[in-house]
Simulated assay, not measured.
Amino acid sequence: MLLVENICKSFGGKEVLKDINFQIGEGEILSLLGPSGCGKTTLLNIILGLTEQSEGQVIYKGEEISHIPMNKRGFNIVFQDFALFPHLTAYENIVYGLKNRNAKVQKKDVQEYIDFLELEPHLHKQINQLSGGQKQRVSIARTLVMQPKILLLDEPLSALDGVIKESIKSRIQQIAQDFGLTIIIVTHDPEEALTISNKVLIINEGKVAQFGTPQQIMAQPADPFIETFILKQLHIKRKNIYRLFGERHA
């Protein structure tokens, strides 16, 4: 569905991304994983159309789309800080983007997303009356009603804790499965990436360190950086990560 080929990006002569390649299919979740400053947000912005690559191609369903502006690509993003309008209610935030759409979205479709995300009790609340998890669900609903071709999420779980974090993680997986929506997530959290995604692209210093399924990455880390980043940096023990996949390794 989406193919990224040989993407490079430089800012002021400094190379930020070098020879990035990957592909994902319909309904899959891909995590762009790496430490701060590795280039993952720049890559997300290139896919979105917010930033233009220096070299390479972004191909969607067989069409090279690098020349297509962001507002014509049909990809939508949920920002890390939710970016909700504080003077509007939750419902007004959800339907805000529909005002400028030529193609009409049926009211029943909007209601389907509201019901799916269990937002009915909160529709008439002001944004400052919502919890972090509720704000995230409103932000996701606002994006879904625009019927995006690909959903991009920038650190969607970083402001959430505990049960709320697990709930939103489950919702994201359900969205991909139930609506067949391809989702790309930017995260710096290895555990988050490995437990939510079908595929993970690990970036280190602007280059692909490894691309594969969570199971492949855990079973065969490509280099010492991946071993260190995933297992030691966040003090996650190998046996606990393997347990997430129902595997047992000595």
Rank of each mutant, 00 (worst) to 15 (best):
P69M: 09
V208A: 06
Q177M: 11
I59T: 00
I94Y: 03
F85M: 13
G206F: 07
L98R: 07
E118A: 14
Q23G: 01
K72V: 01
A90E: 00
V95D: 04
I24W: 01
V95G: 05
Y60D: 07
G133A: 12
T182P: 02
I217M: 09
L88F: 10
V145R: 06
L88H: 01
G180Q: 05
G180M: 02
V16H: 02
L123Q: 01
Q216Y: 06
G34D: 05
H124A: 06
G74P: 11
F245M: 13
Q233A: 13
Q177V: 12
V16M: 06
T89G: 06
R243S: 15
G62R: 08
K108T: 14
I140F: 10
F229V: 12
Q177L: 14
L152Y: 04
K149C: 04
G246K: 09
L17S: 08
A159Y: 11
K18Y: 12
I164T: 13
K9S: 07
P35C: 07
S170H: 12
E64I: 01
D154R: 02
K125G: 09
V208P: 04
E5G: 06
I140T: 05
S31F: 08
G246H: 11
T213S: 14
I59E: 03
A141M: 04
H249T: 13
F82D: 07
G49E: 03
F116S: 02
L3D: 10
Q106D: 15
Y60H: 08
L151K: 01
S66M: 09
P86W: 05
L2D: 00
L30K: 01
D154P: 08
C8H: 14
P86E: 03
F229H: 08
N21K: 08
I94G: 10
K239F: 14
M218T: 07
D19S: 14
I236T: 05
L194V: 00
I230F: 14
T195N: 03
E192G: 10
S167K: 15
I59A: 00
T228P: 00
K149W: 12
Q147E: 10
V145G: 09
P190A: 12
T89W: 00
Q57Y: 15
I168Y: 10
T195L: 08
P148I: 00
P190L: 14
P121A: 12
